[in-house]
């Protein structure tokens, strides 16, 4: 996707939506976000990894919901009505990311994005494109195309 440009391209201002997962802050490119909705119970999918919460009906389309906390290796917390999911388009698929809350919209240039430090575990490093330091906050940008499991790998 166009919004997945390498982080070292500078100059262009981009807008990101930041949100909280547990005590941490993450963000995704605003161009990938379709909408943000309140949590509603999902239909569980059998034979699926734990981070797949199931599927919901989004105006007639079957939308898979991914628990971002679990995907990032944090413990699963039963969602409440205060949780929201962010509907994003990654590759040609549309999925919902279950997060705790949406915080704000950031406008940044790519030179603000720092590479992910080595300390993080491999899984997290894989999902994170870079880290943005803003007003003393640390916000990690999610690499959407890596979140969903490969279709072929699972189908095989």
């Amino acid at each position: 996707m166009t919004d997945q440009a390498p982080p070292n391209i500078t100059g262009e201002r981009r807008e990101l939506i930041s949100f909280r997962v547990g005590q941490q802050e993450y963000c995704v490119d605003i161009m990938a976000v379709r909408e943000i909705r309140g949590w509603s119970p999902a239909t569980a999918l059998p034979q699926s990894p734990g981070y797949m919460r199931g599927v919901i009906n989004l105006r007639g389309a079957v939308l898979p919901i991914m628990d971002l906390a679990v995907r990032l290796g944090m413990p699963m917390v039963e969602p409440t009505v205060r949780n929201v999911f962010i509907v994003v388009k990654a590759d040609d698929r549309t999925i919902g990311l279950l997060v705790d809350a949406v915080s704000d919209i950031l406008s940044i240039t790519d030179d603000l994005v720092q590479p992910t430090p080595d300390v993080a575990c491999d899984r997290v490093r894989n999902f994170i494109r870079g880290i943005i330091s803003l007003d003393g906050r640390m916000i990690s940008e999610i690499s959407l195309d890596r979140l969903l499991p490969e279709r072929e790998a699972v189908a095989a």
Binding site: N57, A61, R151
Partner: peptide, 22 residues
């Protein structure tokens, strides 16, 4: 199901029932 996710073993497809749930 494959459109936005992938094939799930044991499941042929999904549908939406009268209560709006999948």
């Amino acid at each position: 199901l494959e459109q936005n996710y992938q094939q799930v073993e044991g499941v042929a497809a999904a549908t939406i029932l009268g209560d709006g749930r999948v």
